[in-house]
Amino acid sequence: MSVVVLVEVEEGRASLVSREALTFARSLGAGDLHAVVVGPAPEAVVADCRDAGVAVVHEAGDPALERYAAAAWAAVVEAAGRAARADLVVAPGTGRGNEVLAHVAARRNLRMAANVVAVESLAPLVVQRQVVGGAALERATVDGRVRLLTMAGHAVEPSAADAPGAARVAPLALTIDPQDLRAQVVRVEKRESGDTSGLTAAKVVVGAGRGAGGPDGFAAVDRLAERLGGAVGVSRVVTSLGWRPHHEQVGQTGSRIAPDLYLACGISGSIQHWAGCASSRTIIAVNTDPDAPMVTKADYAVIGDMHEVLPAVLEELG
């Protein structure tokens, strides 16, 4: 038996959610742990895989893979699965991870379970996965000769294996079929400010909701995020009203965050928002309503208007 984990590369390292997926896959004790990287595997990524206990790192260097194409990535994952004789393939529950594994599922007519948080048994494979944006859990059986899972972000903490793996780099011999490049990114338009991946991996997130009051109500939020070296995250109502861009949205239909600190200002804390921030290590709520769910679920709270509290905090910080 062996498990293949799709590892996404972010700033030259295995992404946080990929390292979580590696930790999770290792904890299953389902045989050899393999990783697959699309493109040549950077040295730091191989080191991350070694720490996580990976035996083999499969890499695909076809130049056609330089720009993202989900179907081509799926072909790479399939090739790694064949090389590893995998009976389980795990991907991070990111936009890319869910998309690529859905392609593998469609190509091979396999079952896929998205946003898994726990495995109850391996044979048969029974998982717990998030549904309704994380507000409920589904217990599901995943049958088939190869089982496909994506891991919900931040369901486990990444950790090193007791003994590092060999992390032998094995180039995959495959040629990308032009059919798999029919939907390929032709260019990337860089964002002027803000960054979704920065938000997902940020150690500090300063959040703001309806309490910001309008598009001009974020000055103190921006300043505090900058002062704490963190990112800004907002609730759905803020993006729906067009006050801030959608890539800053935290929640069921936005980003899932797991910072050391989430400072949620003027956010009531709907189920949808909570689905995106529940993995924060410490939550501080600033809200005028002491009964708001964000306040009652927080570790710390300040009862007050964010427009008064935040400037006072900035002044105190100097």
């Binding site: 409920a136 859990l137 589904e138 599901a140 002491p290 927080a298 509290v309 006072a312």
Partner: peptide, 25 residues
């Protein structure tokens, strides 16, 4: 492949109220 759904119970929580308004800064 669904076997069952559950709604996880929210863990019991005690919030520490630091204070009110600017005095809490």
């Amino acid at each position: 492949g669904r076997e069952a759904l559950t709604v996880p119970e929210p863990p019991p929580n005690e919030v520490t109220v630091i204070g009110e308004g600017t005095a809490a800064a």
